[in-house]
Simulated assay, not measured.
Amino acid sequence: MTERPFDDSRLLEELASRRLLAIVRGTDADAALRTVVTLVEEGVELVEVSLVTPGALDVIRGARAALGETAGLGAGTVLTAADAREAAEAGASYLVTPALGEAVAAGRRLGLPVLAGALTPTEVVAALGAGAAAVKLFPASLGGVPYLRALRDPFPQVPFVPVGGVDAAAATGYLRAGAVAVGVGSPLVGDAANGGSLDELRARIREFRTAL
């Protein structure tokens, strides 16, 4: 991993080269931390910790301490300006939002790249206008790969990251359709962030890395 700090260009470079953003959402903070560290140890170098996870800010702090200052660690489900500020203070390098809202502008004011959630063409334009580094196509499962292809006709240069219902097979389809990367939660993480098997997590990681 490069040593320079995260900014828009580095986030885009990491998405384009790694092709996979892991989304950690669970019910147990300690298990979520172990999951983040395992993902990175197994070569998944972009990991988002959803703020709906109990103790998510502590998970981000712990992961930052364990993984170092330049690790690709982000905060997800960022909804408010307060969420953005607290995530930045905890050590998040970038923010991921499920929709357009105050968190996008707040992230930009904090100097963090933002992967902003959007679904419709109007929302894509608004996300770009708000300063999003990339567009999280969410929920991607509503339209699937054909919808991404349709969006790329008017927006060929927009870096789309489909999220929502993306398993290994779907990930391949989205990437072939032009997505810069895919965001994957439960099909990759499974129950690891709830205290499930890390060995099974490692097996799923190998499956995804092979597919991608």
Rank of each mutant, 00 (worst) to 15 (best):
R10V: 07
L11M: 15
L12Y: 08
E14K: 11
L15M: 08
R18G: 04
L20K: 10
L21A: 04
A22Y: 00
V24Q: 12
G26P: 12
G26W: 13
D28A: 11
D30G: 14
A31C: 03
A31W: 10
A32E: 01
A32G: 11
V36Q: 05
E41M: 00
G43L: 07
L46M: 14
V52K: 01
G55T: 02
A56T: 13
L57Y: 12
V59R: 07
V59G: 07
I60Y: 03
G62S: 05
A71R: 08
A81S: 15
A82M: 00
R85Y: 01
E86H: 09
E89L: 12
G91N: 05
G91D: 02
L95R: 07
T97G: 06
T97R: 13
P98D: 05
A99I: 04
L100E: 04
G101P: 04
A105H: 05
A106E: 15
R108F: 08
P113T: 07
L115H: 11
A118Y: 08
L119N: 06
T122Y: 03
V124K: 14
V125H: 01
A126Y: 05
A132N: 10
V135R: 13
K136R: 10
L137I: 08
L137M: 14
P139F: 02
A140R: 09
A140C: 07
S141A: 11
L142P: 00
Y147P: 03
L148Y: 10
R149I: 03
L151N: 06
D153F: 00
F155R: 12
F155H: 08
Q157N: 13
P159I: 06
P162D: 12
G165P: 06
V166H: 11
V166L: 03
A168C: 02
A169N: 05
Y174N: 11
R176H: 09
G178L: 13
A181C: 06
A181D: 01
V182H: 06
G183W: 04
L188I: 09
L188V: 07
D191S: 15
D191E: 15
A193S: 15
N194C: 14
G196F: 11
S197V: 08
S197D: 14
E200I: 00
L201A: 10
L201S: 08
I205M: 03
L212S: 06
